[in-house]
Design a protein around this nucleic acid. Structure first.
Length: 521
RNA sequence: CGGGGCGUAGCGCAGUCUGGUAGCGCACUUGGUUCGGGACCAAGGAGUCGCAGGUUCAAAUCCUGUCGCCCCGACCA
C-alpha cells in the first residue's frame, strides 16, 4: 500500500493510512477503508459487489451469532425459491407499489448462439421476479402449512440473497444484490404477532449493541417510511461518523394484510376460520457498512472484537535467519495457548502472520484490516517470556509489553475491554451530536448545510440527531424532507429518549413525544 | 434518469489547455547496506493512456459516440 501524499499536503497533519480522512471527504474515506481493509470490491456487474474473505468472515460471524439468537427464540431455518411468479407479487397492493420499480425480472429460460452471440430464447409464460423480499412466496407456503390454530405460531427464518435494482449503489450500504436474513412468522392473534415483532426488534438491538458495539435507538417508523404492506414498521437506527442515521434492522407487524393476500387461514379453537397475523424482520450485509462507519478511523477498519474474523494477530519479528525457528515456535505455542481461551462463547481467534515481509508492513496491514489485538514478538520477547501488544482502539504507536502468562489469562478481558471502549466511544459520539430542539428556527439552523464552493466538493459532515416534538402530519414531514433532506428516523420507544408530551415546534399542535430527526442513508 | 467530476503500470497520480510517439511516488523483482520494525542505495520488470470511430505526416492530448466509476439529486435496507 502506498502512502503518497495528496497533491496539497499539510505538514501539520499526522500521516494516516487512509486518504482522504473522514473529515476531508467522508464518502471517499469509506470507499478507501473498504479497499484498504480488503473487505469487498466492486464487480464487473453493475451495482453488485464481491465480498472478499475478510469482509465475508465478518458476515459469517454476524450470521453465526444472529442465527443462535433466532434459534434461542424458537425460530427454525428454511429456504424458499429465489424466483417469485409476478402474480404472487401482485397480490398485495402496497407491496407491489413499493417494490415493482426495483425488480429484476426473468423472462426467458434458454440461450441460443446467433452470429457468435448468445441470445435469450424460450420466453416464459409468466415472468419470474428475482426476490426483492419473500413475503409473498413464503406466504404461499404458509397457506399450505397452516390449517389449525395448533399449527401456529409458525416461526421461520431464511438466510438468502435478494435483489433490488437500485439506481445508485454503495458497497455494503446499498447494492443491487445483497445478503440478508428474513424472518417470517404467522400467529393466531394480533397481540402475539405484535409481541413477536417487538421481540425481534429487541434481538436486533441487543445484537447491534453487544456484538457490533453500535449503539442504536429502537423506534417505530412513520407512515412514509413504513415497509410496503406493513401495518407498523419498527427499526433500529444508529449514528454514523458523518452523523447521518443508518437504519440497521427492521421488524414489521404485517397485520392480516399478507395473510389475506396469500390466504393464510386457520381454524381457531372456537371453530372459526380466521386469517393469521404475520410478521417479518430482517438485517442485511448493510450491517458491515454500519460497523465500518461506526468504528473505522483514519487508519482503516476497526473490527469489534466479538465479530472480528481474527481477534489476535501474532507478528513474529525476525531479524536474523537463525532466530526464525525459535521465534516461530514461540508464536505457535502462544497461538495454541490463546486459542485454548474462550471469549464471547467461542475459542479466541488467533492468527500467526508468518509471511516473509517486513514487520512494519505487516503490522500496518492488520491495522488497516482492523484486527483488535496485534502481538509483535521477537527474540528479546522470548527471553522475557512476553509480547509487545498493540490495541486497535488505541493509536498505532501506543504499544506496550505484556508478560505471556498475564496475556493468556486476561486475553478475554482485554478483548471485552476493547469491545466496551468501542461502544462507549460510539455512544459518546452520538450523545455529543444529538440535540433536543424546541423551535423551528433552531431546527432549521441546526440542519442547514454550509455552502459548497463547487458542485464537486465533498458533502460536509452532517449535523446529527435532533429530538423534537412532531404532530405526526405526513405533509409536514414531507415538507421538512424537501427543505432540509431531514426525515423522522423513528419514533423512539424508550421514554427516556421520547420524553413527555409537548408542542410541535412547526405547527404549535400537541405532540405525544419527541421523535428522532436526521439525514439518513 | 438529470447536474458535476473522473477513467494513463497492481495502487495513487502528473502529462491533455498549447498533438511530436509516456512519466513520477508507492508496491513488485534482483543485489547490497540496515535491523524492536510503515528502512536506505543501486539496478530492473511492468502500461495497445476505458472502448470504438474520426481529423492529422503524427493523438493520452483535438472531434464524435459509447462503456464504467465517484459525488450531488430523485428512489431505497
Amino acid at each position: 500500500m502506498g502512502y503518497a501524499l495528496p497533491a496539497v499536503s499539510n505538514a501539520a497533519k499526522p500521516q494516516t493510512a487512509i486518504t482522504p480522512t473522514r473529515a476531508d471527504n467522508y464518502q471517499d474515506w469509506y470507499q478507501e477503508v473498504i479497499k484498504a481493509a480488503d473487505l469487498a470490491e466492486n464487480s464487473d456487474v453493475r451495482g453488485c459487489m464481491v465480498i472478499k474473505p475478510w469482509g465475508y468472515a465478518l458476515w459469517e460471524n454476524v450470521q453465526r451469532v444472529l442465527d443462535g439468537m433466532f434459534k434461542a427464540t424458537g425460530h427454525v431455518n428454511a429456504y424458499f425459491p429465489l424466483f417469485i411468479p409476478v402474480s404472487y407479487l401482485e397480490k398485495e397492493a402496497a407491496h407491489v407499489e413499493g417494490f415493482a420499480k426495483e425488480c429484476a425480472v426473468v423472462t426467458h429460460h434458454r440461450l441460443e448462439a446467433r452470429d457468435g452471440k448468445l441470445v435469450p430464447v424460450g420466453e416464459l409464460e409468466e415472468p419470474l421476479v428475482v426476490r426483492p423480499t419473500s413475503e409473498t412466496i413464503i406466504g404461499a407456503s404458509f397457506a399450505k402449512w397452516v390449517q389449525s390454530y395448533r399449527d401456529l405460531p409458525l416461526l421461520i427464518n431464511q438466510w438468502a440473497n435478494v435483489v433490488r435494482w437500485e439506481m445508485r449503489t454503495r458497497l455494503f450500504l446499498r447494492t443491487a444484490e445483497f445478503l440478508w436474513q428474513e424472518g417470517h412468522t404467522a400467529h393466531a392473534t394480533s397481540e402475539e404477532a405484535v409481541e413477536e415483532t417487538m421481540k425481534m426488534l429487541g434481538v436486533y438491538a441487543e445484537f447491534a449493541e453487544k456484538w457490533m458495539a453500535m449503539p442504536v435507538i429502537q423506534g417505530e417508523k412513520t407512515a412514509g417510511e413504513r415497509f410496503p404492506g406493513a401495518v407498523t414498521t419498527y427499526c433500529i437506527e444508529a449514528m454514523m461518523q458523518d452523523r447521518k442515521a443508518l437504519q440497521a434492522g427492521t421488524s414489521h407487524f404485517l397485520g392480516q394484510n399478507f395473510a389475506k393476500a396469500s390466504d393464510i387461514k386457520f381454524q381457531s379453537d372456537k371453530g372459526q376460520v380466521e386469517h393469521a397475523w404475520t410478521t417479518s424482520w430482517g438485517v442485511s450485509t448493510r450491517l458491515i457498512g454500519g460497523m465500518i462507519m461506526t468504528h473505522a478511523d483514519d487508519d482503516g477498519m476497526v473490527c469489534p472484537p466479538r465479530l472480528a474474523p481474527e481477534q489476535v494477530v501474532i507478528i513474529p519479528v525476525v531479524q536474523k535467519p537463525e532466530d526464525r525457528d525459535r521465534v516461530m515456535a514461540y508464536c505457535k505455542a502462544l497461538e495454541a495457548e490463546l486459542e485454548a481461551q474462550t471469549f464471547a462463547g467461542t475459542p479466541v481467534r488467533v492468527h500467526v502472520d508468518g509471511r516473509d515481509m517486513r514487520g512494519g508492513d505487516k503490522a500496518w496491514q492488520w491495522i488497516k484490516k482492523g484486527a483488535p489485538i496485534r502481538l509483535e514478538i521477537g527474540p528479546r520477547d522470548l527471553e522475557k517470556d512476553a509480547a509487545f501488544m498493540g490495541r486497535r482502539d488505541k493509536g498505532p504507536k501506543e504499544k506496550a509489553g505484556i508478560g505471556r502468562a498475564e496475556l493468556v489469562s486476561t486475553i478475554a478481558t482485554i478483548l471485552q475491554d476493547i469491545q466496551d471502549a468501542l461502544y462507549n466511544r460510539a455512544l459518546a459520539y452520538r450523545t455529543q451530536f444529538t440535540r433536543t430542539i424546541d423551535t423551528k428556527e433552531e431546527f432549521y439552523a441546526f440542519f442547514a448545510d454550509p455552502p459548497k464552493k463547487k458542485e464537486s466538493d465533498p458533502t460536509p459532515i452532517h449535523a446529527g440527531f435532533v429530538l423534537a416534538h412532531f404532530n405526526g402530519d405526513p405533509a409536514l414531514e414531507a415538507k421538512i424532507k424537501d427543505d432540509l433532506k431531514v426525515t423522522v428516523r423513528c419514533i423512539p420507544i424508550d421514554k427516556a429518549i421520547g420524553g413527555e408530551p409537548g408542542t410541535c415546534p412547526f405547527t404549535g399542535q400537541p405532540s405525544k413525544q419527541r421523535v428522532v430527526w436526521a439525514k439518513s442513508y
